[in-house]
């Protein structure tokens, strides 16, 4: 049996419905355990006083990247079946800026706002409300922003393809950046103590 199980049909429709909430609960539990349901901790990222978010995210990227590569090599995962979203440079850059501003103002991102709300924090519920309101607003104004939304499309391109290097070399580059980032983050946090 090879992954992704949803693409190969190994799970079936019922299995997918059961697996989705289980994965969601496990994801939420991991975020909560990492302390990411607490707004001041997340906002600390922007003041360089607490770089937990950076370290958690890059740990996840490294684990997923190395895991996906080696599972594919071992024949346990078919990487070409894994969904890969399109790259749209300008809309995604603007989206990133908006996301960052919202992150800083609220102290929470979409996933962590759910975790915070589940922990009984009102600010989490407020962010979820704002998020749903934003989705509705985007839907309403979509015809006016569609042209920009679909601009500067590069297609489903990988980091290695963009740099014109082998996939293995792309993995090395991301790993070097992540490990270097961990070292710098640790140094910044110690200097701030």
């Amino acid at each position: 049996m090879t992954a992704p199980l949803t693409e190969t049909g190994a799970l079936g429709a019922t299995g997918e419905l059961v697996a989705a909430p289980m994965i969601g609960i496990a994801f939420g539990w991991c975020l909560e355990r990492a302390g990411l349901g607490y707004a001041p901790k997340l906002a600390g990222q922007f003041y360089l006083s607490d770089l937990t978010v950076f370290k958690v995210m890059f740990s996840a990227i490294l684990t997923a990247m190395l895991g996906a590569f080696w599972l594919d090599r071992m024949g346990l995962l078919t990487l070409s079946l894994v969904s890969m979203p399109e790259t749209l440079v300008l809309p995604q850059a603007l989206g990133g800026v908006l996301f960052g501003v919202g992150f800083l103002v609220a102290g929470l991102c979409p996933g962590t706002s759910c975790v915070a709300a589940a922990s009984g924090r009102l600010d989490g519920a407020g962010v979820i409300g704002g998020m749903l309101g934003g989705v509705a607003l985007f839907h309403a104004i979509f015809p006016w922003v569609q042209r920009f939304y679909e601009s500067t499309a590069l297609g489903s391109v990988t980091f290695a393809e963009m740099l014109n290097v082998s996939r293995g070399m792309g993995i090395v580059l991301v790993t070097v950046v992540a490990l270097g980032g961990f070292a710098v983050a640790g140094r910044i946090e110690r200097a701030r103590l």
Partner: peptide
């Protein structure tokens, strides 16, 4: 992580794989 990444570079050194 560094070992697995280094091994990945050795295992997949062809440039670059589209698809």
């Amino acid at each position: 992580a560094a070992t697995l990444a280094g091994a990945a570079a050795l295992a997949d050194f062809r440039s670059p794989r589209h698809g």
